[in-house]
Design a protein around this nucleic acid. Structure first.
Lengths: 192, 192
DNA sequence: GTTCGAAAGTGATCTACATCACGTAATGCC
DNA sequence: GGCATTACGTGATGTAGATCACTTTCGAAC
């Protein structure tokens, strides 16, 4: 399925746009292809776009003290990613985004999103619900962080996204779980 | 300032409603008064409303194993609170909400919010931005959890909300930080 | 195939925090 | 006022996970 159709079906789940309206909305999206390892957003950059993933896997991450990496999100197909803090507040990026695998994305500027939202009530509706889902996911993850130990969080992650196990290196999974790679390694090599 | 004016100014920051439109929107909000300790949402309840805080302080929290409490949010004036997972998905509450102090709130049903959003594009705009801010705050807190130690998180919390120190008991602050009350106690009684 | 850098496994040690246990101060209630 | 309940302080001990150091495996480039 091509990018346009993927986005169309994604939006159709929460908002009713006519074909003409969708075509118009789609005209603001720019398709981009990235190679594995390519950087999309780098700390310190101005951030003007958000990205809708068509294929591949990206990661959004924060780096503290130029050493430790914390992964906020693995962005899989039909997910959106960016440094939303910087995007909405028009500040420099504090979050990095790069590609774990080759990836195709659709790119939308902050300005164009706001334009579309003001022109179509249904587009505003869509973006409200999209953010909503993100908010609930983030809250759920926060709770899981406070309440569960590393083993449980690891098992939950793989239960929800089994493909991650083979798709991304283990040290990135550790960076998502917020533990050291050594701890993660010991975790799945000692039974129970 | 009365409740109506507080909500009006709150909305006016992100959405342009005429006085007539606001009056109509406001007619869907129901003012409620709670006493300290009163329960607003209890685990297992159906959740049909969200709450805009006018005065006082509420907490939204999860209880695991009927023992440990984790506070997701201290809801202060002009904040919104509810079990949003249950509210949007029309499921039973897994989050509890109750009052730390006497409180006045404005109460809005899920159904009425959606009605208002579909009737006024600007209302949809407002709720998109509200959720957006919540999403960014949640993400920021998640990062702080992964990256900072307890002392730093405690200091950040008090720097952001100094009034909390005298307003809420220390064991609730511990439940927000995700540490035991003993650890928090030792933290601010040993210097550095 | 050989080489090299990144990823991953593993042992030893250290530390922040949990948990348990108990004592004390503050607060509400009859 | 007296009593109970809740909040808070503090010591002793246990443990999950961090950190450091080193080895092994793997995958990509030549």
């Amino acid at each position: 399925m091509e990018a346009k159709e993927i986005l169309k079906q994604h939006i159709a789940k929460t908002a009713a746009l006519t074909d003409e309206q969708f075509d118009y909305v789609f005209s603001y999206f720019k398709p981009l292809s990235y190679k594995k390892g390519q950087v999309v957003i780098s700390e310190g950059d101005p951030v003007d776009h958000e990205y809708f993933v068509i294929s591949g896997c990206l990661k959004a991450f924060y780096v503290s003290d130029e050493i430790k990496m914390y992964i906020l999100q693995f962005a899989m197909p039909t997910w959106w990613t960016s440094d939303y803090g910087a995007l909405y507040n028009q500040t420099k990026a504090t979050i990095n985004v790069d590609c774990i695998t080759d990836a195709e994305v659709l790119c939308l500027s902050n300005q164009d999103r706001e334009k579309i939202c003001s022109e179509f009530h249904q587009a505003e509706h869509f973006f409200r619900w999209r953010t909503n889902r993100g908010y609930l996911a983030s809250q759920k993850r926060l709770l899981s962080f406070m309440n569960n130990n590393t083993r449980t969080r690891y098992e939950d992650l793989l239960a929800q996204y089994p493909q991650l196990y083979n798709l991304v290196p283990k040290h990135l999974i550790a960076a998502y779980l917020g533990v050291s790679r050594e701890t993660l390694s010991r975790l799945y090599n000692t039974h129970k």
